[in-house]
């Protein structure tokens, strides 16, 4: 009996040695399955976008693309996993707007610069929502009420310092209102904030149209304006901030595909091409339209620029409103 164990160990080591030995063939990329890391949970909007893209990228590359949800640390863990992975193209990730904010809050050292960008596929602009039976029919009504009673109207939509928080504060600032006159009520999700809005707990919710869609359709919530230069596809009748007030302020969340820094040029180009093909496919368009997500394309360079711009804006806003030191 006792002789079995050493033999088992020997076999194990032989197998391990085989595994460590240099690659048998350096063929065309990809040789094996690719991991697509999602920093958020299965079943959410980000996950659904990643899974759709994953299928389409898989079709183009001819190797399985396995979606992997790494949800720890409020998005930090997933973003970190992508940035720290071996730069061989076998680990890519769907990175989200939080990457431009977390480092200002001291949660991570990573920023948009920590990645090789492959393509941005989605932007969902922020919008301002109120209860359907509230007296505020337009964004001007609302801003007038804020100015008349500083501190009385409460807003919500995400965690303290989250992207919708910054969107709203940025809008107020751009309109010449002190953002701190609208106290922010933190919420765990936009859904929870909308529920609180309907229950009469808060007065304003900042968030995207796809998130508010069900309650707007149900006649419980009214959207006053969207922080973008184009009206949204879901609710084209909701005015843009610029058309309603003349103030120019664009803000929203984005999602894009990225890989670790230092990717071989050939691999980078192959992956970027696969992301673009996936983005342009009719399946992706159909999926994004059915969920109401904004289908926006930025090539790798423009994606990096977009992150840098949002990063600078977020940093300045967080400092000026005392959200970070």
């Amino acid at each position: 009996m006792a002789s079995v164990f050493p033999r088992f160990l020997a076999a194990l080591f032989a197998l391990a040695a085989l595994a460590i030995s240099p690659a048998f063939a350096d063929g065309v990329f990809p040789q094996r399955p690719i991991k697509l890391v999602v920093p958020w949970g299965a079943g959410g909007g980000t996950d659904a976008i990643a899974r759709t893209l994953g299928l389409l990228i898989e079709r183009d590359l001819g190797k399985p693309v396995n979606v992997m949800n790494i949800t720890g640390g409020s998005g930090v863990m997933g973003h970190q996993t992508v940035a720290m992975a071996a730069p061989d193209g076998y680990t890519i990730g769907l990175i989200t707007a939080e990457i431009t904010m977390m480092h200002h809050q001291g949660l991570t050292k990573l920023s948009g610069d920590s990645y090789t960008t492959l393509g941005l596929v989605n932007i969902d602009p922020a919008a301002v929502q109120v209860r359907a039976d509230s007296p505020y029919k337009t964004i001007q009504d609302l801003v007038a009420a804020i100015k008349a009673n500083p501190g009385k109207l409460k807003a919500s939509g995400t965690a303290r310092g989250g992207s919708w928080h910054l969107s709203l504060y940025g809008m107020l600032k751009a309109m010449g209102v002190d953002p701190l006159t609208v106290p922010w009520v933190p919420s765990m999700s936009n859904n929870a904030a909308l529920l609180d809005l309907v229950a009469g707990g808060v007065d304003i919710v900042a968030g995207s149209h796809p998130e508010a869609r069900a309650l707007i359709d149900a006649g419980k919530v009214r959207s006053l304006a969207i922080m973008d230069d184009e009206p949204s596809k879901l609710f084209p009748k909701v005015p843009t901030l610029k058309s309603a007030t003349g103030t120019h302020w664009e803000s929203g969340v984005f999602r894009g595909i990225a890989a670790p820094k230092g990717l071989p040029k050939a691999v980078e180009e192959r992956l970027a091409a696969a992301v673009k093909t996936a983005y342009e496919s009719p399946e992706f368009k159909q999926f994004m339209d059915s969920r109401g997500f904004g289908r926006v394309w930025r090539d790798p360079k423009a994606f990096a620029d977009h992150m840098a711009k949002v990063d600078a804006e977020s940093g300045a806003l967080m400092k000026s409103t005392g959200l970070v030191k």
Binding site: G73, V76, M77, L107
Partner: peptide, 20 residues
């Protein structure tokens, strides 16, 4: 973790795993 209303990381000992 930091999933509290103030979004302040408590008892995380600078481990990103504990932030959530």
């Amino acid at each position: 973790g930091m999933e509290n209303p103030a979004a302040y990381p408590r008892y995380t000992f600078d481990r990103p795993e504990l932030a959530g």
